[in-house]
Design a protein around this nucleic acid. Sequence first.
RNA 1: GCCGAGGUGGCGGAGUGGCCACGCGACAGCCUGCAGAGCUGUUCUAUAUGGGUUCAAAUCCCAUCCUCGGCUCCA
Length: 484
Amino acid sequence: MLQVYNTLSRKKEPFKPLHEGEVRMYVCGPTVYDSAHLGHARSIVAFDVIRRYLEYKGYDMRFIQNFTDIDDKMINRAQEQNTTTTKLAAKYIQEYFEDFDKLHVKRATAYPKATEHIQEMIAHINKLITKGFAYEANGSVYFRVSRFKQYGRLSRRDQGEEMPFEQEDQDAGVIEEKEHPEDFALWKVMKPGEPSWDSPWGKGRPGWHIECSVMSTKYLGDPIDVHGGGLDLVFPHHENEIAQSEALSGQPFVRYWMHNGFLTVNREKMSKSLGNFFTIQEITAKYDPEIVRLFLVSSHYRSPIDFSDAQLEEAKARLARIHNSIDLIQRRLREARVEEAKNPRKPSEADTKMWEALSTFEHEFESAMDDDFNTPEALASLNKFLTTLNTMVVGNQSVTAGTLEKTFISLDAVGEVLGLYRERMASGAADDRTVDGLVKMLIRIRDQARKQKDFKTADQVRNQLKDLGIILEDEKTGTVWKWG
RNA sequence: GCCGAGGUGGCGGAGUGGCCACGCGACAGCCUGCAGAGCUGUUCUAUAUGGGUUCAAAUCCCAUCCUCGGCUCCA
């Protein structure tokens, strides 16, 4: 039974979606004013794995992720670059997809943008005003926090709590026109030169929080099963979403609130304001995206991960181990098929052992993932299984092709959930036949040299092939080759 | 100030009462003409500190110290 940690209750809860067999999930996406950095990847990959595991469990996913394409940062950046917010958004949305395709993040069902839902937001705000949950002041509209009793429930804050510091980012005018300092903007009056939309309160633009309430409900209904995002969104963003949505609906907006932990650099949060961020493009130029992904899923999604080159080097070594095992099983499978075409075989004791290991692996993998998507433990189960697999497959070849095929299918399913190593599994099958034939011919020549103790020639063959990107490895049962 | 998360071996990182993570690194052995891969073992009497509960604690309780995060745009 899948257990999910719910930020609202601060507990793991059994997961039961509202609609049988279907999960509706919304994740807060980025504001598209700049390149995505590794901190974004942390969040996006975490929810990608969650999504993939829910699919593994057989649920149909309706998964929405928004792009915030209008806010202060968008406006400022567009002005700096002498462009429009629309162009700016288009540029970074395109880049976003390039980055996350590389990281093997599956596409969401849809990626709605704030600017495409202005009318719905206005309608929502209007209803809030009618019901007394919001008020207009000088062309802006604010949510009246004091009217919403449960405010602060998600972030565990008391209403009216005093802040020990000044809220300097807001104009004196804004502070003055609000009934209470904690009231937040639903609609912001237009300032000169800013993009704006017509509304019953004059020209302006939506506040940040309202888009998620409106788009979530539009695409997924109310309530939804899962709403996710980074830990830093708990307050004020998600708290405000709850207020805006539940004030109208009178029922819980979200059934499971899920938040991922931060990615840190030298144990400090990676963020633009600290200037300690690395973009996904920078990292993937240096490390294969699959290594980056393995690094990201190597700790639990709620834990902090500290980023460093040493960490990525470790992930690289760990990925190599996984790739080696996959190469191994692929080769053995090919061989076993050829052999068994000539001499059909029945499963032996070795096969029984493999089936047992396989069933243990599947069971351990699922219990790990059922426990609030515990990917490090899931990877541990994979590692354990790979050790058994390596021992069996390197040690003897008595396992039948059928067993190897079963193994392959299981590994593939797990790889699909984690978003790892599936390309490696696919690539082996597509080895070029001519190359394979040529390399095998050279292996036979080298074998003759080795038998005659002519190691000079043997090494020459191996070294020259290595220069061409082909690695020869001598195994008990003969020499095999792979792309280096 | 208020709220929250956490301190596990050389490193990363799981684990909510008894057994065991898992990996990376290092070293050794097996295999090998050599190399690689793989396997085995060692590093490993690891669980911030001090008390307490218990037959038994990384895990429960109390206290202390330390780190990080949120409270302001943030994944």
